[in-house]
Amino acid sequence: TTEYTFTDDEEARRAIEELKKRGLTFRYEKHGTTWRVRVD
């Protein structure tokens, strides 16, 4: 499991789109302004 942290909404959304394109399994949660994206 790899975890990424983003504080920029645009950056987080781009990363999420990219992961979807690659067909990877991931989860994300947003805490205030911080996004945590975990890739299995």
Rank of each mutant, 00 (worst) to 15 (best):
A12R: 02
L19K: 00
H31D: 14
F26Q: 00
D40M: 14
E17A: 12
L24V: 13
L24P: 01
T7L: 08
T33V: 08
V37L: 08
E10G: 10
T2G: 05
D9N: 06
T25P: 09
T34A: 06
R27D: 08
Y4G: 01
Y4C: 14
E29W: 15
F26R: 00
T34W: 07
T5D: 04
A15K: 10
W35K: 01
D8Q: 04
T34Y: 10
V39M: 04
W35T: 06
T34V: 14
D8Y: 03
A15M: 15
W35A: 02
D9L: 08
F6L: 02
F26N: 00
L24A: 12
E3A: 04
E17I: 09
R14H: 09
D8E: 05
K20M: 12
E11L: 08
E29H: 08
H31M: 12
R22D: 05
K20D: 05
K30D: 02
E10W: 09
T5L: 14
D8G: 05
Y28W: 13
V37A: 00
D40S: 11
E11W: 05
T5P: 01
K30V: 09
E17W: 11
K30L: 06
L24S: 05
R14E: 08
G23L: 03
H31E: 13
E17L: 11
R38E: 14
R27Q: 14
R36Y: 15
E10D: 12
W35P: 00
T5E: 08
G23C: 03
Y28P: 02
W35R: 01
T33A: 10
K20I: 14
E29Q: 07
I16G: 02
T7M: 09
V37W: 01
T33F: 08
D9A: 12
F6R: 00
I16Q: 01
E29T: 11
I16R: 01
T7R: 06
E18V: 09
T1S: 11
T34D: 04
R22M: 13
G32L: 04
D9Y: 13
K21V: 07
K21W: 06
K20E: 11
T34L: 13
A12K: 02
R36Q: 07
R14F: 07
R27E: 12
T1N: 06
R13T: 09
Y28I: 15
R38W: 15
F6Q: 00
Y28E: 03
D40T: 13
T33R: 07
V37Y: 01
W35N: 02
D9R: 09
K20P: 00
L24G: 03
T25K: 13
D40I: 15
K21E: 09
L19D: 00
R13P: 01
V37E: 01
A12M: 13
Y4F: 11
E10S: 08
G32V: 02
T25G: 06
Y4K: 03
R36G: 02
E29G: 04
T2I: 14
A12G: 04
Y28T: 09
E18D: 12
T25E: 07
E11S: 14
G32F: 03
F26M: 04
F6M: 02
A15W: 15
T7E: 12
F6N: 00
Y28D: 02
T25I: 12
R36S: 10
E10Q: 10
A12T: 03
T2V: 14
D40N: 11
A15P: 00
Y28N: 01
V37D: 01
Y4I: 06
T25A: 10
E11T: 13
T2D: 05
L24I: 12
V39N: 00
L24E: 05
E18M: 11
K20T: 12
F26K: 00
G23Q: 04
R22C: 08
R36P: 01
E10A: 11
E18R: 06
F26A: 04
D9I: 11
K20V: 12
A15T: 10
R13I: 12
D8S: 14
K30W: 04
E11Y: 04
E17T: 09
T25H: 13
L24Q: 06
R36D: 04
R13Q: 11
T7Y: 14
G32N: 04
E11F: 04
E3H: 07
R27L: 08
K30F: 05
A15Y: 15
V37T: 00
